[in-house]
């Protein structure tokens, strides 16, 4: 019996459908997260990052009050 015979009998086709649903769910999760309230300030700070070549906007050792 070859590997492809074993794989054929495993009914893998359903997995593609399940994974589509998983991907859909994760994507909706990201949408939900991004548009939840209360993080405007963080996003604003991140958005300013390209504008300053000299100073970090978010240095790694600064305490965060979030």
């Amino acid at each position: 019996m070859k590997l492809s015979d074993i794989m054929s009998s495993m009914g893998l086709a359903t997995y593609a459908e399940i994974s589509l649903l998983i991907f859909f769910a994760v994507f909706m999760g990201v949408v939900f997260h991004v548009y939840k309230k209360g993080s405007q300030e963080t996003f604003d700070r991140a958005g300013r990052m390209p504008l300053d070549d000299d100073h970090p906007q978010d240095p790694r050792d600064v305490k965060e009050n979030a």
């Binding site: 590997l3 492809s4 794989m7 054929s8 086709a13 997995y15 593609a16 994974s19 589509l20 991907f23």
Partner: peptide, 14 residues
Amino acid sequence: VASLFEMIPTFLIR
């Protein structure tokens, strides 16, 4: 993961 799920059926289901 997305790629595998996309390919495995075409590859292995006779």
